[in-house]
Amino acid sequence: MCLGIPMQIVEIMPPFRATVEIQGVQRAVSIALIADEDLKVGDWLMIHVGSAIAKLDEESAHETLEVLEEVNRLT
């Protein structure tokens, strides 16, 4: 039940629905919990029991990746 799956927005159906996709599998999900986020097609969402609970913070994700790559280079 706590299993979260990251999926990418294919289509936004205001006010509360969106179609999301991962590896070719599409699903209609609720976006009621992130309605105040600025959403666009291509955004990554964390989906949980059919609801988007968060939008991926790209900046933070890239920072983490850069740190990991940097440490990898040094070791």
Partner: peptide, 17 residues
């Protein structure tokens, strides 16, 4: 309705409609 916060929030948001 069984679950933790991750399930409770979508349950609460049902009442948006």
């Amino acid at each position: 309705a069984v679950g933790f916060e991750t399930t409770a929030a979508p349950m609460a948001a049902l009442f948006a409609q």
